[in-house]
Design a protein around this nucleic acid. Structure first.
Length: 622
RNA sequence: GCCUCGGUAGCCUAGCCCGGUGGGGCAUCGCCUUGGUAAGGCGGUGGUCGCGGGUUCAAAUCCCGCCCGAGGCUCCA
C-alpha cells in the first residue's frame, strides 16, 4: 500500500465521473474539509486487512503528535503501478475507514472508483508532506493462505517406485519390462517422471457437451458443473448403483453437513494432515470450511456412538453431494478434476490390523466388481499400491496378496517415512487419451484419526481402544466415472468401433422412427409396451427426412434405432439398427425387450428424463 | 498459482498480420417436401466481436488490465 500523507489547511474535492463498474454511489457535489490529515491511498496487490490497520495506526501516531483530529481517506490509484483489483481495494479502503472510526478518529472518505478533482492547501511544517509504503508482513500472508502442513510436507516427500507382480515379486520400476503393459507404463510415467504428451482438447469435454450430458457453468467458480437432463440421469443412476452396492456390502448410509467450523479442535488438526485447499466461508463470527470428503461428519458421528468389538467392523457410508476442493485453477479440467464433486465415501472401523486386512481385501474385491459392473474392466485401468517402508517390512505377504488378487502388475510407491495419516493405500487409475491418470476407487488404512477424533470401542475385556479406520471410495467421484466412460468410448472410436455408453446408462435405449405421421399410433403402442418393461424409449416424430433422423440417433449414441412404416405393419417384425454390432437385425419387439432386460439386469432404472417426443424437446447445447 | 495459446449469434468458423458498415455453415422459427437406414429445398429471426480501459477522425482488428477455456509447469486422498 502506498500513501501520500498531507497535513492540510483545507481540501476541496468533487466527484466528476465514474471510472469503473464497481464505483461507489456518490453525489457530484463539492466537499470542503479544513484542518485535516489527507491520506492519498493506493491499495496494492497483496494488501490485506492487517495492512489497512497498520496504515491507520501510523497515521494516528501523526495525529497524536500534531494535535490533528480528523483524517480524509482519499483513494488515489496513481501512486502505484502494482494496484490491487478494484473490488479488493475497495474492501481494504473500507476496512481503513471502519478501523479509524473504531479508534475514535473523525474520519472522512472520498468515493472510490471516481474521477475526482481537488484543490488542496498544505501546511508549511517539515512533517506536513510524507510518503509511505506499507508492505504486508510475511507472517500475515501465511495466516491468510492456510495451506495445510501436509500439503507442504508433500512437496518434500520422497518416494521409491516399484512394480509389484501378481506372483509377489517387486521390481524397481526402471528394471521392469513394460512391453506387455503399455497402459501401466503410461501410468507409471505419469506418476513418476510427470511426462505429458498431447496437445488436444480432452475428448470427454467435447463428448459431454455434444451429448448434452454436462457443461461448464460460467456463472460459478471453475470446476463446478451443470448437468443437463441426460447427464443428470446418468449421474443419478451411477449414484443409485454405487449406493445399492454399499448397502449390499453392509454399510449404513448416513448424511452429514457440508460445512464445518474451522476452529473445532479435531478438525483443525485433521485439516493440517490433508493436503487440500479448502473453500472458506465466513458467517457471522464463525469461520467455516466446505468439506472435501465425508470423513468429518462420519468421524464426529462415530465419536458420539456407543459400540464394541461385537459391532465391528463398523461400516458407515455417505455419497457426498458435494465434496469441495479448491484445486489450483490450472488443474481443473472437464470432469477429470473438479472443485465440487460427488464422492461415495465409506469408512470401516476395525478392531485391529488382522480385522483391517481382512476387510481391506473384501473391499478391494468389491471395488473391482463395482467398476466392472459400471462398465470399466481391469483392462481399462491401472492399480497403484502405496505404503510406508516400515509397514511393508511387517506385511509383505498381505501386500503381495493384493497384487495377486488384481492379477496384473501394479505400480508401487514406497515412502521412507509416514507423512500422511495412513500406512497403506491403493488406488485404481484411469489412463486417458492424453496419457493422464485419474484415480477412481481407493481405500486406505488410517492409523491416526481414531485418536484425533477420540473414537473408541470396547474390547472383550471391557477396555477402551482406538480402532483402525479404512477410508474407501468404491468408485471414486461419480463425475470422474462419467469422465472415464467418455474417455473409454473415445478410445474405442479411435480403434474403429462406434463410441457407446453402457446400455443401462444410455439416456435413450431405443429410438423409434415412424416413416410418416401415419404410423405414429403404431409406434406409440410399441413404446408403451417397452415402457411397461422399464426401457427408456423415445419417438422421433419430427418432420425431417428419415435419413436425417437416423443420423441424429447415431450422433446421440443411441444403442437401438428402429424405423417403422408400412412394411412393419404388414410383417409384424421390425429392423433394429444395432449400434454395437453395426448390423440391421430383423427382430420382434418382444425379442428386443428381452435382449435389453438381459443386458441391464440388476441395474437401477429411471425413466426417460426428457419428453418422449423429439418434437417437444428443447436443445440445451449447440 | 506461473508460462504459452485462444475467446466472433445456442454450436462450428472466416475476417485480425496490414484499422474504414462483421460473412458462411449447423441449430432455432415459417413454408414446401411423407421420406426406407448417417445431412431434402426455400425463406426469416438472431451479434454489447469475452469484459473494462487506452490509442485513433474511426477498433472485431493496435496497446494495457481482468475474466473464462486449452496445453505445459506444478499438483492430484
Amino acid at each position: 500500500m502506498r500513501i501520500l500523507q498531507l497535513h492540510s489547511n483545507f481540501i476541496e474535492f468533487q466527484p466528476i465521473q465514474k471510472e469503473i463498474a464497481i464505483a461507489e454511489d456518490a453525489e457530484k457535489k463539492s466537499t470542503r474539509l479544513e484542518e485535516i490529515l489527507v491520506l492519498f491511498t493506493a491499495v496494492e496487490e497483496g494488501d490485506d486487512e492487517a495492512t489497512a490497520r497498520q496504515a491507520i495506526d501510523q497515521a494516528r501516531e501523526f495525529l497524536e503528535k500534531q494535535k490533528v483530529t480528523r483524517i480524509l481517506i482519499y483513494p488515489y490509484a496513481h501512486l502505484s503501478s502494482n494496484l490491487a483489483k478494484p473490488s479488493e481495494a475497495l474492501k481494504i479502503v473500507k476496512t481503513m475507514e471502519a478501523y479509524a472510526r473504531g479508534k475514535g478518529v473523525e474520519t472522512f472518505r472520498a468515493p472510490f472508483g471516481w474521477n475526482k478533482q481537488f484543490t488542496i492547501s498544505i501546511k508549511g511544517h517539515p512533517l506536513a508532506e510524507q510518503s509511505r509504503a506499507i508492505i504486508p508482513s510475511k507472517e500475515e500472508e501465511k495466516k491468510e493462505e492456510k495451506i495445510s502442513e501436509a500439503a507442504k510436507a508433500e512437496e518434500k516427500l520422497e518416494s521409491f517406485w516399484f512394480i509389484l507382480q501378481p506372483d509377489g515379486k517387486m521390481i524397481p520400476v526402471e528394471d521392469f519390462d513394460f512391453s506387455m503393459h503399455k497402459e501401466l507404463e503410461k501410468f507409471a510415467k505419469y506418476e513418476i517422471s510427470k511426462v505429458r504428451a498431447t496437445q488436444q482438447m480432452p475428448p470427454h469435454v467435447t463428448s459431454m457437451k455434444k451429448l448434452e450430458l454436462a457443461d461448464y457453468e460460467p456463472g460459478s467458480d471453475p470446476g463446478h458443473i451443470r448437468w443437463y437432463p441426460k447427464g443428470r440421469l446418468m449421474k443419478s443412476l451411477l449414484e443409485q448403483f454405487v449406493t445399492a452396492k454399499m448397502a449390499e456390502y453392509g454399510a449404513m448410509e448416513v448424511e452429514t453437513p457440508v460445512m464445518y467450523d474451522f476452529q473445532h479442535p479435531s478438525l483443525a488438526d485433521y485439516l493440517n494432515r490433508f493436503p487440500a485447499r479448502q473453500y472458506l466461508l465466513k458467517s457471522e463470527d464463525k469461520e467455516l470450511f466446505l468439506r472435501f470428503a465425508a470423513c468429518f461428519g462420519q468421524f464426529l458421528m462415530v465419536h458420539d456412538a456407543q459400540f464394541s468389538y461385537r459391532h465391528m467392523p463398523l461400516k458407515i457410508y455417505e455419497l457426498t453431494r458435494y465434496s469441495f476442493r479448491r484445486e489450483k485453477s490450472g488443474e481443473v479440467v472437464g470432469l477429470r478434476r473438479l472443485r465440487a464433486f460427488s464422492m461415495p465415501d465409506c469408512h470401516a472401523f476395525c478392531t485391529d490390523l488382522q480385522q483391517a486386512e481382512k476387510e481391506f481385501m473384501t473391499r478391494f474385491k468389491l471395488c473391482i466388481q463395482v467398476l466392472e459392473e459400471i462398465g470399466l474392466s481391469k483392462e481399462n485401468y491401472e492399480a497403484a499400491i502405496r505404503f510406508t517402508k516400515d509397514f511393508y517390512e511387517k506385511n509383505k505377504k498381505f501386500i503381495a496378496s493384493l497384487a495377486e488378487t488384481f492379477g496384473k502388475p501394479v505400480l508401487v510407491e514406497m515412502w521412507k517415512e509416514r507423512f500422511f495419516y495412513f500406512v497403506l493405500k491403493w488406488d485404481f487409475n484411469y489412463v486417458d487419451n492424453q496419457s493422464k491418470a485419474a484415480a477412481l476407487s481407493t481405500d486406505q488404512v488410517d492409523v491416526e484419526n481414531a485418536k484425533r477424533y477420540e473414537i473408541s470401542y470396547v474390547n472383550e475385556k471391557g477396555e477402551k481402544h482406538n480402532p483402525l479406520i479404512l477410508h474407501c471410495s468404491p468408485s471414486g467421484a461419480i463425475e470422474r466415472v462419467v469422465y472415464a466412460l467418455l474417455e473409454k468410448a473415445h478410445k474405442e472410436q479411435q480403434e474403429g468401433k462406434a463410441p457407446m455408453l453402457p446400455l443401462w446408462l444410455s439416456p435413450t435405449q431405443v429410438r423409434l422412427i415412424p416413416t410418416s405421421d401415419e404410423f405414429l399410433s403404431h409406434v406409440e403402442k410399441i413404446a408403451e409396451k417397452m415402457e411397461r418393461n422399464s426401457i427408456r424409449v423415445d419417438i422421433d416424430d419430427r418432420a425431417m427426412t428419415l435419413q436425417k433422423r437416423i443420423r441424429e440417433a447415431e450422433m446421440e449414441w443411441i444403442p437401438y434405432t428402429v424405423v417403422f412404416g408400412q412394411r412393419e405393419v404388414e410383417s409384424g417384425a421390425f429392423p433394429v439398427r444395432d449400434r454395437k454390432t453395426k448390423d440391421l437385425r430383423p427382430m420382434k419387439p418382444e425379442d428386443l425387450i428381452k435382449e435389453i432386460l438381459e443386458n441391464v439386469k440388476n441395474k437401477p432404472f429411471k425413466p426417460l428424463p426428457l419428453p418422449k417426443y423429439l418434437s417437444k424437446r428443447p436443445q440445451f447445447y449447440g
